[in-house]
Amino acid sequence: MKGFDLVALLSNPGFRAMLLHGLFMTFVVAIGSWLLAMSLGIALLAIRQLPGRIAEAAVAAYISYHRNVPTLVQLMLWYFGIASLLPGALQEWLSDHNAEALFAILGLGLCQAAYFSEDLRSGLRAVPPGQEEAAHALGHGFIGTMRFVLMPQAFRNALPALVNHTVSLFKNSSLAMAIGVAELTHAVKEVESESFRTFETYLVATIIYLACSLLLMAAGAALSRRATLAGAR
């Protein structure tokens, strides 16, 4: 093993480019799946509000599946399993368009949507029932009540849980390496095996992940402070 030398690792343009590209892919996967998860999470919550038992049961089954099956297994099922059932033309198109990353975004997004949806649902449940009645009394319909009265408060209540799950989504983006996405953890393994500087490589990746997670946590804390002030309960 060579002596500790962080500069030697980072001053190598090849290694630097690999790590930066890895970081970029981590952001692509994390942001893409976050957007999918948040929109689907809201949609699932909306479906749950529909009258009738079937919608409720379907959403409950969706959430139960995604929370009780390991995320890595869900990714494997998508990338190795479900992908193999698609028609040939679609499979070819996918493999020309970074199928690994697309399936990682899809798998992580669908999985995290279950968590976001549950967070929002508990946030919604915590809104006092008088709020809904008051909104109806003021002449808001179902959509107006949701959009202008209930959901803003639900988001505020759910904020800490949403932030926690955003951090875990960001960390879970590292699982994408198992299906071959060239994100940061994947890049780390490659740089490590080429440079033989395991310690330095892991250190760089750990600092990057930690900095991003702490930044997300701090942003979440700042956001919830602001939301509490604006809430003026």
Partner: peptide, 15 residues
């Protein structure tokens, strides 16, 4: 606690 919470489990496994 913050260190472990902020780093993916996969990185900890590698460490």
């Amino acid at each position: 606690v913050y260190l472990v919470r902020g780093v993916p489990l996969l990185m900890i496994i590698f460490w």
